[in-house]
Amino acid sequence: MDETRLVERARAGDFDAFEELVTRTEGRIYSLLLRMTGNPEDARELLQETYLSAYKKLGSFRGNAAFSTWLYRIATNHALMRLRRKQPETVSWEELPLPSHEEIRQRGVSDWAVDPKEALLRREIRELLVRAIQDLPPLYRAVVLLRDVEGLSTADTAKILGTTEGAVKTRLHRARIHLREKLSPYFADGEERGGRAVIP
C-alpha cells in the first residue's frame, strides 16, 4: 500500500496503518537520532517520543509534505530539545570556529588516498565519522545530518529547522569544512597528516 493511503488510514484511526508507517520509517529516524545524540539510550527514548508525538499530531499533518520529512521535523525537534536540556549553557550552538584560509595554507593541503566506499567498510572509519559529527554544535550537526547523510533538500532542511535556506547553506559549508579538518589527519598523504599540531 502506498504511503499516502497509509497516512489517510492512520489519520482515520487505523493503528495498524500507523504501525506500518512506523516500520517503514524507523530505520532512518533512529539513525538520525543516534547521530544527533551520539548515545544509543537517548536515541531509543527519542525514537519513542518521536512516534508518540507523530501519532498525536496526525490530525495536523498536511499531505503537501512527505510523511518522512514531517517525521524528520518532529525527531529533530525532540533531539534538539533534549540536547539543550543536557548541555551546559557554555556550549555554543551558533559558533563554529574554523581555521582561517591562512592557517589552511600554512598547513599545506594534500589529497586523500582514500576510496570512500572502501573506507566505510572499516569499523574505525565509521566510528571516526560519528565522532567528528559529535564535535559540531547541535544546529550544524542537524544540518549536515539532514542534508548530507539523509539526503534532504536545502528547502526541506530549512523547513525542518525553522530557518532560512541561506542559513542552511552557510551552516552546511562550515560543518563540511570542520569535518574535513577532523578527517584530514587520518586520510591525508603528506603535510596534513599531523593535523593541527604542525601549525607553527
Binding site: 586523500w112 582514500v114 565519522l129 549536515v144 539526503g151 563540511r176 569535518l179 584530514s184
Partner: peptide, 13 residues
Amino acid sequence: TLKKTVVLYKYSA
C-alpha cells in the same frame, strides 16, 4: 578532499 568528506558522510549511514 571536501568532496570526499561529503561522499563519506553520504554513505556513512
